[in-house]
Amino acid sequence: MPQFKSKIATGSDSFAQNRKDMLTLIDHLRGLEKRAVDASEKRRPTFEKRGQLTPHERLKRLLDPGMPWLQLYNMANYMVEDSNPDTSIPGGSVILGIGFVKGVRCMIWVDDSGIRAGAATTGGWDASKGAQKMAQDLKLPFIHLVESAGANLMEYKVELWAHGGMLFRNLAWLSAA
Rank of each mutant, 00 (worst) to 15 (best):
M1C: 05
K7P: 11
K7I: 03
K7V: 02
I8V: 15
A9R: 13
T10S: 09
G11P: 12
S12E: 02
D13F: 00
S14V: 13
S14T: 13
F15Q: 09
F15K: 08
F15Y: 14
A16D: 02
A16Y: 04
Q17L: 15
R19C: 04
D21Q: 13
M22D: 00
H28E: 07
L29V: 15
R30K: 15
G31R: 00
G31V: 01
L32H: 05
E33Q: 10
K34N: 11
R35V: 09
A36T: 01
A36I: 00
D38R: 01
D38I: 05
D38N: 03
E41M: 07
E41V: 02
R43P: 02
R44M: 02
R44A: 08
R44H: 01
P45S: 11
P45Q: 11
E48I: 03
K49F: 15
R50M: 06
G51D: 02
G51R: 00
L53Q: 14
H56I: 03
R61M: 08
R61W: 12
L62H: 10
P65Y: 03
L70K: 14
Q71D: 03
N74H: 05
N77Q: 04
Y78H: 07
Y78R: 03
S83H: 15
N84I: 06
N84Y: 08
T87S: 08
T87F: 07
T87V: 05
S88K: 01
I89V: 05
P90F: 02
G91F: 00
G92L: 05
S93R: 11
S93A: 14
S93Y: 14
I95C: 02
I95H: 01
I95T: 01
I95A: 01
G97V: 04
I98P: 00
I98Q: 05
I98E: 07
G99D: 02
F100L: 07
V101N: 06
K102P: 14
K102L: 13
V104Y: 13
V104A: 13
C106D: 01
M107R: 15
W109V: 03
D111S: 09
D111T: 08
D111C: 10
D112C: 05
D112W: 04
D112R: 01
R116I: 10
G118L: 07
A120G: 09
G123A: 12
G124L: 10
W125P: 00
A127L: 05
A127R: 00
S128T: 10
K129E: 04
K129T: 06
A131P: 02
Q132L: 01
Q132D: 00
A135D: 01
D137S: 06
L138R: 09
K139R: 05
K139Q: 08
I143D: 01
I143M: 04
H144M: 05
V146P: 07
V146T: 00
S148W: 10
S148F: 06
A149R: 14
G150C: 13
A151N: 10
A151R: 08
A151M: 04
L153K: 13
E155A: 15
Y156V: 10
E159D: 09
H163K: 14
G164T: 06
G164A: 11
G164W: 12
M166G: 09
F168V: 08
F168H: 10
N170A: 12
N170W: 01
L171Y: 03
A172V: 13
S175F: 10
A176P: 04
A176G: 04
A177E: 05
